[in-house]
Each structure stands twice: as structure tokens, then as C-alpha cells.
Design a protein around this nucleic acid. Structure first.
Lengths: 335, 335
DNA sequence: CTGAAAGCGCTAACAG
DNA sequence: CTGTTAGCGCTTTCAG
């Protein structure tokens, strides 16, 4: 590693004090244009890159945000990384990722949070998951500004970005019940980015409205987040089942439904309709193409870091709870 | 933000000097067991988390590695993040991600590298892509230890993790030519994690071996990395084309081939065979299920950070160029 | 085995 | 408008 050029070198080269150099790299307006140019020239000549670590120590800020998520979730949130990366870059933040849930770790979440604390990230983005409450408590203990994606939190201290999961489920179910299609099943996968409880609640309320009994044990079917596993499970399931509508928390599982049902000679959408969620490439690939609820994944990532930085900079914030819009994209698995 | 507890607080609490505290948190063996316990107790009591930033300044190490990749690549490398995250965590490294190729940025790569330099990441992982050579030069200029995933580099200064792309293509093509199936087309997508040039080279060599003319203009078909786009393009293409075999650099494009061909009434695999690459979930979802070349994506990520840390720690390294194994997974798009 | 002291590279009062 | 100086929290000689 070659000797790095420091602010001292620049100061000497430009024949000013290091304070002045510091001022120009931080855009302080009180520097004479002439001096500024001298310094800028020296910076250029020396190819000086300010050491963020040193700056971090001096300001107790790292301009780094940590994002923590269970690996499994990744397949569904890849576009979110795009949003997070883009606005992170624009706002000049570094984004550090921390994955959880590797098998074999005794206390994965706690140790991950500990790493984040040590790294002194300015803020953290969490994804809704089974352990979200625990994670939030840990993070809050260290007063790290937080926004969570995927579930509404009405908590003064944390921001949240989410879709109205209850409404999604309610509207779909309501619509089918109105048409007399009452045999409706929801496919539930663990580690839902979308709040599963809210979806089930939405289902329930639609059933209540139509005064039809809702049996959670029969109408909520848990599956593996692994396609191969859920497909096998569903191959068995559809040997003896058929419903008016099945909808799933993720497209991947909806596709498993479509394929497993089709392979059991259930004609889709004629015999059974299927709706997925996320409107991912999986939906376009599926045959018949999958009707899916579109969600602005990229935007959710972008909004999350935007909101987080607003919190960090104490900017004006209209609301810490931001609902993003969803939209049903009808394709060929529904009539 | 509450006042953070520092090493001074611990020193006072334990009634020792801060040098001693530093020694115990760094596992120096020269501390008397008795003293160590006292310090440990104090650390516990105060819930002290060493400030990595300060440590970084003092040691000029950040225990952070940067990973830089084009967003588009993400769909294909999601499992790699798992590998990178897991071993990063085990080795106690932070991993910072930097995405490139957002539209509208004048000089995206240069500015990203600049961010990495400023952040003083200890090392960097790059993914093979169109601009890889330029990226490497930039990174090398700052002497940042580097490993690249997806392409072999016989360069003293950088490590690389890759599959033998040429062999993949050669073997597949050779096998089909031997069966008399000579009409073979390769679907090329930009931003290939797998080195496309190598694959084409492998094709060529197989054709040469069989003394058959190879026409790169006709036998290499470029497509969009966006499924919807490539599907539309291929829908047009297969109105007037049909081949013995088409294989693609990614499963997603192979699926587009399968769907577009099927929708043009080409029977797969009877009329035309299709092979994808990566053995991703797309391959399992596709109907008929897609034959695909499996690659150890997770492992490539894991190996990359392992190799990088070996370089960083100056550990013994047998080779800086590590080939990972691939394996053809036959499914229903081949006979 | 432990403490004192000098940095790591930068920011931020405080003078001038 | 610019320079001086005191930290930020930790590591690392160097003494003892």
C-alpha cells in the first residue's frame, strides 16, 4: 500500500493551512475564490481523496447506512437494491449489507446488529420478517435511526415503507366472493416482505362482509420459500384439492401453484384462478402468464433511503409512514 | 444520539489504563488473566462496543470490502450475495455494495470507484462485465487488492473466480455436432457474468474440430437482459427461424427462447433443443423444464471473499485463479 | 505485565 | 477570509 496523500500534503502543496483545505473540500463558502482554486489545483495534482474514516472520527458520522435482511428475501427484493444503491449514491452514502439467517449461527441477529453498532452506521434499513420486532428493539437500544420496509410501524422513532397488504387481500377476496367464488386459499411463505398477518386479516374482513365463514386452518396454506420444495408439496396437494382462487404472497409460490395444478390436470384459469404478488419476471415467464399484484419494488428501496437520510439530516418530514401503491396486473391465470 | 461509551470509560470503570483495555479487546496474550477479567467485566457492564472507525483510523484498516456490480447482473447473482455475506460475517468484514450503470450518470464507474477509494475499503470484488478492464485499471491505480468474479485474469495483482466458459460451450457444441446437429445458435446478453467471448471461442473451436463453418453473425444472437424485451424480440425471430439447438448465457433468456418458440408452435425439445445457464429457479419454473448448466453461485461469492481476505492478510495462497466446477443439468428442453 | 504518550487524517471552534 | 489548536476513539511503540 502506497503512502496515501493527506490533507497536509495538499496544504503544503497549495501553501495554505490544512483548515483551508478542509474548508474547500467541504464546500465552505467563506473561502476566497482565488485560494479555493489554488487548493483545488493542488488536490487535482496530488489526486487527493479525503479519508472518510478520519472524517468519520472527527464528525462522528460515517455517511454509511446498513441494510439488514434475511437471505431468503433476496430473490424478491433484488430491484430494491437498485433503488437503494441509486439514491444512496446520489446522496453520497455508502451502503453496507448484512445478511442474516445463515444456518448454524447461534445468535445471528444479535451478532449482526452488534456488527452494525460497531461499524457506527448512521442509520439502518430493516426488512419485515418474522423477527422484525426483536431486531427493532435491538437497534433502538443503540438509538440508530431506522426505517423498515414491508410493514407499517406507527412508532415515533422509526420510519416505514409498505403497501396496504390488508387492502390488497380484501379487495381481491371481496371481488371473488361477490361473484360467488367462495373457495379461496392464500399461500403463505415465511419471511414475507408483505405483511402476511395483514393479508389474512383482509381476507377475513371480506369474508365477514359477505357473511361467510372463514377457516384460517384450511384457507391459509403455508409453503416453503424454495420453489422446488413448494412445487413438490403442491403437486401432492392438488391431487385432492381444487379451489376457485388461490393467491400467494410471492409470484414464485404462485407459479408453483400454477405448475403443480396444471400438472394435476387442473385447467387454469378455467378450473381455478391464480394470483401472485410482486409482478416479477416469474409472472411473465409462467405459462399461462400469471396475474400478479404489482408493487414498486425499486421505489420502495429508493424511498427507504430517502426517508432515512431525511431523518438523519433532520429534514422536514411529512410522514414517517409511507404507503406505496399497488396495482393488479391481470394476465392469463385469471378470467 | 446518546453519548457513546469509549475505551476511556471502560479504563476508568476497570481501573486500568486505556492501553490495557485496548489489549484485551484485541486479544493480546500479554494481559494477566486477572486484569483481563476486570476489563471484560467493565466492558460488559458498560455495554461497550469498540468504535471501528477510530480503530480504522489508527490501523489504516477498515475491515470493509467493497463489491461493485452493474444492477442488471443482480437477478443472476443473488445467491452470491449469500456467499459473500456469510463468509464476510464469519471473517468479521463489513461488505459495502456499490451498484453501477444507472441511466443518466455521466461517469458512473469512475465516480463509484472514487467513492470506494474515499471509503478506504480494504479490498474490492468486481464482477465481469463490459467495462471490467477499465474498472480494474482504476482500482489498481489505488492499489486496492482486487478479486474479480466471472473471468480469468492472469495478473499477478488480482484474484479471479470463474467457470471454464470455453469448455462449457465447447463440450455442448461438440456433442451436438457429433450427433449431426449443426444448426446451433448462442444467445448473448450484455453484462455477462460468464465470459461471452470465451463461450463463443469454445463454440468456434468445436466447429473447427468438426470442420464446419462457423458464422458468428448468424450464430450469435444478442438480446436484451430484460425478459419482456427479449421475449418480444424472439417472438419475431422464431416466426422465421428454427435451430437444432439454442443455448443462452442466462436461464432467463433461455426461458424467453422456450416461450417464444413454443408460442410460435415450435415443439421443444422435439423440433428444437434449448439449454440455459446458471441452473436458477427460472429453469425449474419453465415449461418444459429447462436444461441448464449449473454453477456454484453461492460458492463463487464465498470463495471470492475468502480469496480476497487471504490476499489482505498475506496468507498463503495456492492460486489466485480459481476455476469452479459446472455441471449440465438435463431437463426437458433437451432430448 | 501495564502505563504514558504519540499519532492515524480530518473537523471545528477560536483567534486573528 | 485564513491559521492555530484541540480533539474524535483507538492502536502502538517505548519505558518502567
Amino acid at each position: 500500500m502506497l503512502k496515501k496523500v493527506t490533507i497536509y500534503d495538499v496544504a503544503r502543496e497549495a501553501d495554505v493551512s490544512l483548515a483551508t483545505v478542509s474548508r474547500v473540500i467541504n464546500g465552505s463558502s467563506v473561502v476566497k475564490a482565488n485560494t479555493r482554486d489554488k487548493v483545488l489545483a493542488a488536490i487535482q495534482r496530488l489526486d487527493f481523496k479525503p479519508n472518510e474514516i478520519a472524517r468519520g472520527l472527527a464528525t462522528s458520522k460515517t455517511t454509511t447506512i446498513a441494510i439488514i435482511f434475511p437471505q431468503m428475501l433476496f430473490a424478491h427484493v433484488k430491484d430494491m437494491i437498485g433503488g437503494i444503491g441509486d439514491v444512496g449514491r446520489h446522496l453520497d452514502y455508502n451502503v453496507c449489507i448484512y445478511t442474516t439467517d445463515e444456518i448454524g449461527d447461534a445468535d445471528p441477529i444479535d451478532s449482526v446488529i452488534e456488527k452494525v453498532v460497531k461499524s457506527r452506521a448512521d442509520g439502518v434499513i430493516l426488512f419485515n420478517n418474522e423477527h422484525i420486532q426483536h431486531q427493532i428493539e435491538l437497534v433502538q437500544k443503540y438509538k440508530i435511526p431506522t426505517v423498515v420496509i414491508g410493514k407499517r410501524f406507527s412508532d415515533e422513532r422509526i420510519g416505514s415503507i409498505f403497501v396496504d397488504a390488508k387492502a390488497i387481500a380484501y379487495n381481491i377476496v371481496d371481488q371473488y366472493l361477490a361473484k360467488g367464488k367462495k373457495d379461496i386459499v392464500f399461500i403463505d411463505t415465511k419471511q414475507n416482505l408483505i405483511n402476511t398477518q395483514d393479508m389474512i386479516q383482509g381476507m377475513k374482513e371480506a369474508f365477514i362482509k359477505h357473511q361467510i365463514h372463514f377457516d384460517e386452518n384450511k384457507q391459509v396454506l403455508p409453503t416453503s420459500p424454495q420453489y422446488e420444495d413448494s412445487y413438490v408439496q403442491l403437486m401432492g396437494y392438488f391431487k385432492s384439492h381444487k379451489h376457485d382462487l388461490v393467491f400467494a404472497g410471492y409470484d414464485k409460490e404462485a407459479v408453483a401453484v400454477v405448475n403443480a395444478a396444471s400438472d394435476n390436470n387442473i385447467k387454469i384459469p378455467h378450473d381455478m384462478e391464480v394470483i401472485g404478488m410482486m409482478n416479477s419476471t416469474y409472472a411473465s415467464i409462467c405459462r399461462p402468464t400469471l396475474t400478479s399484484v404489482h408493487m414498486p419494488i425499486y421505489d420502495m428501496g429508493a424511498l427507504a433511503v430517502r426517508l432515512l437520510t431525511k431523518i438523519l439530516h433532520q429534514e422536514e418530514i411529512d410522514t414517517k409512514e409511507v404507503t406505496v401503491q399497488h396495482l393488479l396486473m391481470p394476465r392469463d391465470t385469471t378470467m
